[in-house]
């Protein structure tokens, strides 16, 4: 059965776009440019679903063995 939304699957963690006004703050906090960050394709099903565009930063919140819940950031390319 085709899945309409990948986010409905229990293995797909929560993806959300970092609001544009917070992006600069985020980049400054980690002292990185987008090209030094982990990447995600614009055509990634999870990115399509939340409507992320090239240059956006996606915040991924997922379950973690060690920390319980961990956040991760990917730059959309």
């Amino acid at each position: 059965m085709p899945v309409e939304k990948v986010s409905m699957h229990y293995l797909v963690p929560k993806h959300e776009i970092v609001p544009s006004e917070k992006v600069d703050e985020f980049l400054r906090k980690f002292g990185v440019e987008r090209d030094a960050m982990p990447k995600i394709l614009e055509k990634d099903p999870a990115a399509i679903e939340i409507g992320a565009k090239k240059g956006d930063i996606i915040k991924i919140t997922r379950a973690s063995h060690t920390a319980g819940e961990a956040v991760y950031f990917r730059a959309v390319i």
Binding site: F30, A36, M37, P38, S64, T66
Partner: peptide
């Protein structure tokens, strides 16, 4: 020092070592 795990050219691998920084 900020607990991020990075490669030799400072690309980020993890934002906090082992996800919990421990």
């Amino acid at each position: 020092n900020d607990l991020t795990v990075r490669t030799a050219n400072k690309n980020i691998i993890q934002y906090s070592y082992g996800e919990d920084g421990v």
